[in-house]
Simulated assay, not measured.
Amino acid sequence: MRIGELAERAGASVRSLRYYEEQGLLTSQRSPSGQRHYDEYAVERVLLLKRLYAAGLTSSVITEVLPCTYAPSIETNDHAFERMTAERDRLAAHIAELTETLGSLDRVIAMNRRWRAEQDAGSNRRPDTATGA
């Protein structure tokens, strides 16, 4: 498939695909006229790359962990495996921080809702004609 079709099928921009190639994360075959042609596996590869980038991994880290995704082997991928587990631990810690932050925001929102409800209830009260309050 050509680059435009891959971009459409994987939900990526043509620019991103070119960048992935520049970084060595994606490969293509070139036609005699220089057009890029991709195998069917390229769609899954691009989807994986998008997920890894969305998780906060850099292209250099992705380059290190990719060998574990297509040719698991103890002899050749020890470093990649170690890096992958380190990135997983980093992501898990980040998710824990985000979860804690979300909980804090939920508490602040709840407090503000209670305050707003009290303010609304107070503004809806009619003054007591006997006391002037």
Rank of each mutant, 00 (worst) to 15 (best):
I3F: 03
A7S: 05
A7D: 05
A7I: 00
A7G: 06
E8L: 07
E8S: 05
G11C: 10
S13C: 04
V14M: 08
V14P: 06
S16G: 06
L17S: 07
R18A: 00
R18W: 08
R18T: 11
Y20R: 09
E22Q: 13
Q23N: 07
G24K: 08
G24D: 02
L25R: 07
L25Y: 10
S28Q: 07
S28G: 04
Q29S: 10
Q29C: 04
R30N: 04
S31P: 00
S31C: 01
S33Y: 02
R36P: 01
R36K: 01
R36I: 03
H37T: 12
E44A: 15
L47Y: 09
L47I: 12
L47W: 05
K50V: 10
K50Q: 15
R51F: 05
L52W: 02
Y53N: 08
Y53F: 13
A54M: 09
T58D: 01
S59D: 01
S59E: 01
V61F: 02
I62E: 04
E64P: 00
V65Y: 04
V65M: 06
L66P: 00
C68Y: 02
T69I: 04
T69A: 15
S73P: 01
E75F: 10
N77T: 15
D78G: 11
H79K: 11
A80Q: 02
A80V: 03
M84D: 00
T85Q: 10
E87Q: 14
E87M: 13
E87C: 12
R88Q: 07
D89Q: 13
D89H: 11
R90S: 07
A96G: 12
A96M: 06
E97C: 11
L98A: 14
T99Y: 05
E100A: 15
E100M: 12
E100L: 14
L102Y: 08
S104L: 06
D106F: 00
I109K: 01
A110T: 08
A110I: 03
A110K: 00
M111D: 13
N112Y: 14
R114S: 11
W115L: 15
W115K: 01
W115M: 14
D120H: 03
G122A: 14
N124G: 12
P127G: 03
D128S: 08
G132I: 06
